[in-house]
Simulated scan of single mutants.
Amino acid sequence: MRSGSLPEHIPGTEADMRDLPVAGRPPAERADAAHNRRRILRAAAELIAEHGVDALSMDEVARTAGVGVGTVYRRFGDRARLVYAVIDDRERDFQAAFLHGPPPLGPGASPPDRLRAFLHALADRTEAQADLLVTAEADPPGARFRDGSYELYHMHVAMLLGRIRPGADAAYLADALLAPLAANLFVHQRRTRGMPLDRIKAGLDALADGLLTS
């Protein structure tokens, strides 16, 4: 999640978006180290999905991954860094999909189709790691808005809105469209109010359609 700082301007071309960094890209590493990294992240993700993030332990991750616990500590340092690495692993795939992947999420579709596809994909991405994202967005308070991933989402949505409605306040409207996908609100809707994921996506469509047709 915590990629490096991104430029503050709103990109207006696809080339601008393609040049933006993908969050959490790991440094070049030996093949055996990369293999161990993938095994550890896969094991951590499975354990979090099964038992929740609060139950995650470095010892259990090592046992599940089939590596020594020292390998886990040397690679990730501590439990908190491992949790963020699990988030980043999924985040890289998501960002690569909307920056470089096939349409309608990636380049090649019309701006309205890309906007709807992005909102749906972000809902799926939030659903997949909701508990982890709640933790990441709350530590420290307001972390969501200082995170490089949010800035990239905002730039992407603002770029699409600028193409759909030239002259509109794309920066403000991008924040408005992303606000319902804050992890704490998403979890409240899904678990407290019992909203199906399809209902949330339909609501996002209604918000987007209001912008596209006004």
Rank of each mutant, 00 (worst) to 15 (best):
M1I: 08
M1K: 10
P7I: 11
P11K: 01
P11W: 00
G12C: 10
G12L: 13
G12K: 08
E14H: 07
D16A: 12
R18G: 13
L20D: 01
L20A: 02
P21I: 03
A23D: 10
G24T: 08
G24V: 04
P26G: 11
P27Y: 04
A28M: 11
A31Q: 02
D32Q: 14
A33F: 06
R37H: 13
A43H: 03
A43E: 05
A45Y: 04
E46Y: 05
L47I: 10
E50Q: 13
V53H: 10
D54N: 10
A55W: 01
E60D: 12
V61P: 00
R63L: 12
G66K: 07
V67F: 05
V67Q: 07
V69S: 12
V69C: 00
G70I: 06
G70Q: 07
G70F: 04
R74G: 09
D78P: 03
D78Y: 03
A80E: 15
A80V: 13
A80K: 10
L82G: 04
V83C: 08
Y84I: 00
Y84V: 02
D89G: 00
R92Y: 13
D93K: 09
F94D: 03
Q95P: 09
A96R: 04
A97E: 14
H100K: 07
G106Q: 06
G108L: 10
D113I: 02
L115N: 01
L119E: 04
A121M: 02
A123R: 02
D124Q: 00
R125D: 15
R125A: 15
T126E: 14
T126P: 03
E127L: 05
A128I: 13
Q129W: 04
D131E: 13
D131P: 01
L132N: 06
L133A: 10
V134Y: 01
T135I: 11
A136Y: 07
P141H: 11
R146E: 15
E151C: 12
E151R: 15
E151I: 13
L152I: 15
V157T: 12
V157Y: 11
V157P: 09
L161W: 05
R163W: 04
D169Q: 07
A170C: 11
Y172M: 12
L173G: 08
L173K: 09
L178I: 02
A179M: 14
A182S: 14
A183M: 03
L185C: 06
F186S: 05
F186P: 04
F186W: 08
V187G: 04
V187E: 05
Q189L: 11
R190G: 01
R191W: 11
R193Q: 00
M195L: 15
P196G: 11
D198E: 15
R199N: 10
D205R: 05
A206P: 05
G210P: 03
G210K: 04
L212V: 15
